[in-house]
């Protein structure tokens, strides 16, 4: 009896060490990046002798950077809308139904999430050219939407599977036909899942480099622009842009996580 708590405590300290090592491993590069964005020198490295907001004011004054930001957000929003529509529709079709080939259908639905980005990007490029689709916003939105659909399907299906059958039956019993039942009972129930999936899709699209690079026209998305800037060397402006993007995505992600968790608890 006496040994076991000791052993347990030892384990806990060990586990805590591993945890904090992991935190350092994840956050040190991010912290470095953020710090360099405030350093009053083009040279990246320590020591930092004086601080500045110069890089930030530069970035925010640069209309090209701002329009790229907007372009990336527009792509993210459009592709998310499409993924949500298609993904929710597929989830509703697949969940709780038994038909021949359901497993195959489900597998095919998930495939776009599993194909390596570079391969799907090249495939899209070839396909787009064959169809005569010009590289640019449309092509990127299309590729992002296809890539994100599986995530929507998974999240929405998981939520749908927890909807008690009696809810649907109660609505029918009270006079609602299947369509009204879907709109007034099923859809409101899916809202937390759809919101969560939307945020996830927005972030995935905003962050995507490979597909945007291969399918983009003359106008770069944010990651593509950063990549282009990098070719002329690392600069504090990149740190500033990346920090803004980091804060934005982290804030949205955290808010969404809290929000969906609260909604799930309420319903």
């Amino acid at each position: 009896m006496n040994d076991r708590p000791e052993l347990f405590r030892g384990n806990r300290i060990f586990l805590a060490c591993i945890y904090w090592a992991f935190v350092l491993y994840v956050f040190v590069p991010l912290i470095l990046m953020v710090l360099m964005g405030f350093k009053d020198s083009r040279f990246i490295g320590f020591p930092i002798r004086s601080w500045t907001l110069e890089w930030y004011t530069g970035v925010f004054a640069d209309t090209e950077v701002l329009s790229t930001f907007g372009y990336s957000i527009a792509i993210a929003v459009l592709s998310t809308l499409i993924s949500i529509l298609v993904g929710t529709w597929i989830a509703v079709l697949l969940e709780g139904r038994k038909f021949a080939g359901r497993g195959l259908t489900f597998g095919l639905t998930l495939l776009p999430a599993l194909v390596p980005g570079i391969i799907s990007a090249i495939a899209f490029r070839i396909y787009a050219r064959w169809l005569g689709i010009e590289p640019g916003m449309g092509a990127i939105v299309w590729a992002h939407a296809v890539h994100n659909v599986p995530f929507v399907v998974l999240v929405v299906m998981a939520r749908l599977s927890t909807l008690p059958k009696s809810q649907i039956e109660a609505a029918r019993d009270l006079g609602a036909d299947p369509l009204i039942t879907f709109l007034r009972i099923t859809l409101p129930y899916l809202v937390p899942a759809i919101l969560g999936a939307s945020i996830f899709c927005l972030l995935l699209s905003f962050d995507d480099f490979v597909r945007s690079f291969f399918l983009g026209g003359y106008e770069p998305t944010l990651p593509v622009m950063i990549f282009a800037m990098l070719r002329s060397g690392m600069s504090p402006e990149i740190n500033a842009i990346a920090t803004v993007a980091l804060v934005l995505t982290a804030a949205i992600g955290l808010w969404a996580e809290r929000f969906t968790r609260r909604m799930n608890k309420e319903r």
Binding site: P164, S166, Q167, E169, D173, I185, P188, Y189
Partner: peptide
Amino acid sequence: QPPEKRQVNMVFQDYALFPH
């Protein structure tokens, strides 16, 4: 006849109240 057409209503075992 489907349920929505019937003059019959039901109290469900789990009540099935609409949470929203």
